[in-house]
Design a protein around this nucleic acid. Structure first.
Length: 631
RNA sequence: GCCGGAGUAGCUCAGCUGGUAGAGCACCGCUCUUGUAAAGCGGGGGUCAGGGGUUCGAGUCCCCUCUCCGGCUCCA
């Protein structure tokens, strides 16, 4: 048999040869350094046989940044962790331990709880294993044999995994530890040059909170100490961009125990907020939306009609009354349904687009709040579009175009995800074919790449979600575009068709920025606090050199303000250097020093980061106008 | 809600085995009157998250509650 190498040459090998055999045939050094192979684009354990004619690539310890090479390294590191834990904690049960982005974890059922302090000893044990040397061997066994083996070892989680596993069963052994595992794995532990256990967490068996909670140990591993150091350093730098740190530092908002999950917005934060509101309002108007305002509290009966009381009452805030009970709205849908239903509607009125940026309250479970990214008091840039089936695709397209335009403006790359019919769905497959296709073709029409989450749709319809990643790599849902055929029925909404008969409208629920709180949180991290000119709370900082220059600086400030820009003045009795430093720390886009040498015809302009130039006021205002015109 | 960790001045943090709270920055005052990333001196400021307990004595030990952090679960 033969295989094709990356440089297009062919390699002759005996039948049944493995990836490792191929590496040996090429060179002993390669065989020694080999960690993994890629065959036809898929990764495969080196121990597995090659297929005649396939194209292969051998990854080695020098592919230190290759995601697949890191995966196999970390997967093997997870097995070393399990081996160490079993030795240090007799009676522990092992569950599952995969590589993940930036590291790996392993879940254990400890006889007695462990804490952070124990990680050091476990890490030392792993290092000892590596120093001692570990080689992985792979064997393929029958399901029954594997099941019997793990049962005999008293490993119930492994037995369950064997019993529910798809395909053949393979085992990997290193030291005195044998694990159920599909692989691939390293040949031996030598390539693991740096390993660190990072944290401890609870995790439910098989991700179900009805199951036992296991103890998850997180760690990471690299092909070199320098890579690990670099990673830890990047994590530290990322923390400095965390909106929870930058927000209060830049005086944008703060959070307080007095009202957990409800931000206090400071004047500077409100500038950003209002710029987003202006943007939303302007674009909505241009795209044919009508702005509305609906109540914050409703009779509980309304939520019984909508179904929210039944499904989400745990997360709602209630206001008990003597005669009627009210609830704070957790979303705008019912209000907009009631508004639509308040008058007789004609097909000529459709599509009807109600937009509302409203405050919502959700009583989020303790433990899920997270800065601005998960709050109890949130504000969605919401809208509901009432339309006919024929109008769905155009309306979805309009929403996608709107969303894409917004994210492009911020230079953010959101991931679009299409979620399709769930098992528990309302309506027929024919209806779902129709609605899913409408969403899919709208995505294609706008040229948006997307991933599909089969079965993740809402019970009432398919949806498109936009996701962003925060500075520490956590994914958050931003915008959402949902198609709904059920809520209008629940509220008995109809419109009069051209056929003089009543029809039920479809509704598109859509929030594009998502929640303003979350969007601003992500934006703070995205820009590292250095907002573009149009969003910056303070656009220009004026610094009079000494007392005699204050009058001229104030006059200049008045001129800039009158032109519609946000300027402030730093008249503190501090040195010039100090005040410039503060302007930089506050990430003000423009700083103007005003002293004896300056006049309105000749200003000393410093841009954020340090660039200096001389400009007249008119030139400066023209420059500013150009900056905001792009928005 | 669950697992683990944390909470000391506005911020960042120190405070060893229990013995009546400390630094830098910030703030205020004075001096200096400034040229592109931190002038000098002085001063005010803390119910050590809250509550209960152990003790002659608790920031420090124990219990409960709240909040935050890392995860899990959830997210209409």
């Amino acid at each position: 048999m033969k295989v094709v190498l990356p440089n297009d040459t062919e390699l002759e090998l005996p039948d049944g040869a493995s990836g490792l055999d191929a590496a040996r045939a090429i060179g002993p050094k390669l065989a020694e350094q080999a960690v993994l192979m890629r065959a036809n684009g898929e990764t495969r354990d080196l121990r597995l046989p090659l297929v005649d004619g396939e194209r292969i690539q051998i990854l080695t310890t020098r592919d230190t940044a290759d995601p697949d090479a890191l995966y196999v390294l970390r997967h093997s590191a997870a097995h070393l962790l399990a081996e160490a834990v079993r030795r240090l904690y007799p009676g522990v049960k092992v569950a599952i331990g995969p590589p993940i982005e930036n590291g790996f974890y392993y879940d254990f059922d400890f006889p007695k709880p462990i804490s952070d302090g124990d990680l050091e000893a476990i890490e030392a044990e792993i290092l000892r294993e590596i120093a001692e040397g570990r080689e992985w061997t792979r064997e393929e066994v029958s399901r029954d044999a594997a099941s019997a083996r793990f049962a005999a070892e008293g490993e119930p989680y492994k037995v369950e995994l064997v019993d529910t596993a798809a395909g053949d069963i393979s085992l990997y052994t290193q030291g005195d530890f044998t694990d159920l595992c599909r692989g691939p794995h390293l040949q031996n532990a030598a390539p693991i040059k740096a390993i660190k256990l990072t944290s401890l967490a609870g995790a439910y068996w098989r991700g179900d909170e009805k199951n036992a909670q296991l103890t998850r140990i997180y760690g990471t591993a690299f092909y070199s100490q320098a890579d690990l150091d670099g990673y830890l350093e990047r994590q530290e730098l990322a923390k400095a961009r965390d909106h929870r740190k930058l927000g209060p530092q830049l005086d944008l908002f703060h959070l307080s125990e007095e009202s957990p999950g409800s931000p206090f917005w400071h004047p500077k934060g409100m500038v950003v907020w209002n710029e987003l509101e202006d943007l939303r309002r302007r674009e909505n108007r241009a795209r044919g939306y009508d702005e509305v305002k609906t109540p914050l509290i409703y009779d509980v009966e309304v939520y019984k009609t909508s179904g929210h009381f039944e499904n989400y009452r745990e997360d709602m805030f209630f206001i008990p009354g003597d005669e009627r009970s009210y609830a704070l709205k957790p979303m705008n849908c019912p209000g907009h349904m009631l508004l639509f239903g308040s008058q007789l509607r004609s097909y000529r009125d459709l599509p009807l687009r109600y937009a509302e940026s409203s405050t919502l309250h959700r009583d989020e479970r303790a433990g899920v709040l997270h800065g601005l990214l998960r709050v109890r008091h949130l504000t969605q840039d919401d809208a509901h579009i009432f339309c006919t089936p024929e109008q769905i695709e155009d309306e979805i397209f309009g929403c996608l175009d709107f969303a894409a335009t917004l994210y492009e403006l911020f230079g953010m790359e959101a991931r679009f995800e299409l979620s399709t019919r769930p098992d528990k769905k309302l309506g027929t497959d024919a209806e779902w074919d129709f609605t899913e296709n409408a969403l899919r073709s709208a995505l294609q029409r706008r040229g948006i790449e997307h991933v599909v989450n089969e079965g993740d749709g809402a019970f009432y319809g398919p949806k498109i979600d936009l996701h962003m990643t925060d500075v520490l790599g956590r994914s958050w849902q931003m915008g959402t575009i949902q198609l709904d055929s059920q809520m209008p029925k629940k509220f008995g909404l109809t419109f009069m068709g051209a056929d003089n008969a009543e029809h039920t409208p479809y509704v598109v629920h859509r929030a594009l920025l998502g929640s303003l709180e979350r969007f601003i949180g992500i934006a703070i991290e995205h820009y590292g606090g250095a907002f573009p000119f149009w969003l910056a709370p303070v656009q220009v900082r004026l610094i009079p050199v000494a007392e005699p220059h204050r009058a001229a600086a104030n006059a200049l400030r008045a001129r800039i303000t009158a032109a519609g820009f946000r300027a402030d003045i730093d008249e503190r009795d501090d040195t010039l250097g100090k005040r410039i430093r503060d302007a930089e720390v506050e990430k003000v886009p423009y700083t103007i020093v005003y002293g004896d040498r300056e006049s309105d015809e000749s200003l000393a302009v410093r841009e954020r980061g340090g660039g200096q130039s001389t400009k007249s006021v008119d030139e400066l205002l023209t420059e500013f106008a150009a900056l905001v015109a792009k928005v």
